[in-house]
């Protein structure tokens, strides 16, 4: 049996003991699960503060979902499913907040949300490459150069509405690529 297998079976045993009410085993289990989730989140997000917040949220969800673990199944998919669920909720919130910003006239483009910056930059590059040239320029001006809608419209020689529409479509493509 490899080290990985041993570690998995130990974790499974810890969860089974925790389900029976053993708080020492539960504490050890949460520490190990916390490390797994931290690696999972860090691969997808780069901001360490955000990772820590999400890890703690996932631990809370694991506490609520403890009765759903069946020891006949491997433990990692169970942990990652709960982690992915939390991550998707978080990314949906970012998406919603970006959509609200696009809908409102006053997009504080300067801010280029810290959380968007936190997304995996390589994935973001790949997503940006799927945009048309105009969309890419508009998203860059708005989200990375901190230009206002008006400034972007002037620079692109377009109306403000056309910029909003192009930006919105661009964001949609990005979110689709990032599987948000």
């Amino acid at each position: 049996m490899s080290d990985k297998d041993t570690s998995r079976s130990e974790l499974t045993q810890l969860i089974v003991k925790a389900q029976a009410g053993d708080s020492q085993a539960y504490m050890q289990m949460l520490e190990r699960v916390g490390q797994l989730v931290e690696r999972f989140m860090y691969k997808r997000l780069k901001a360490s503060d955000l990772v820590e917040d999400l890890v703690q949220d996932v631990l809370l969800n694991i506490h609520k979902a403890l009765h759903t673990y069946n020891s006949e199944y491997p433990v990692e998919p169970w942990v990652y499913a709960i982690a992915r669920n939390r991550l998707n909720d978080h990314l949906r919130k970012i998406k919603k907040s970006v959509e609200i910003q696009v809908d409102a006239d006053s997009i504080p483009e300067q801010a280029a949300d810290a959380e968007i910056r936190a997304l995996d930059l390589q994935a973001l590059d790949r997503a940006m490459s799927k945009l048309s040239e105009d969309q890419r320029k508009i998203v860059t001006l708005l989200k990375f150069d901190g230009k206002s809608l008006k400034e972007t419209a002037t620079e692109m020689n377009m109306t403000v509405s056309a910029v909003k529409v192009a930006a919105h479509r661009g964001y949609k493509v990005i979110f689709k690529e990032l599987e948000v």
């Binding site: 708080s23 539960y26 504490m27 949460l30 916390g34 490390q35 820590e52 631990l59 759903t68």
Partner: peptide, 25 residues
């Protein structure tokens, strides 16, 4: 592991009660 995570784990462990595992599907 940060202090707040350690605190959370300690809190959750102190709240632990035996759970009835869901039946298989």
């Amino acid at each position: 592991m940060g202090k707040s995570r350690a605190d959370l784990i300690s809190d959750l462990s102190s709240q632990l009660k035996p759970v009835k595992v869901l039946s298989p599907i």
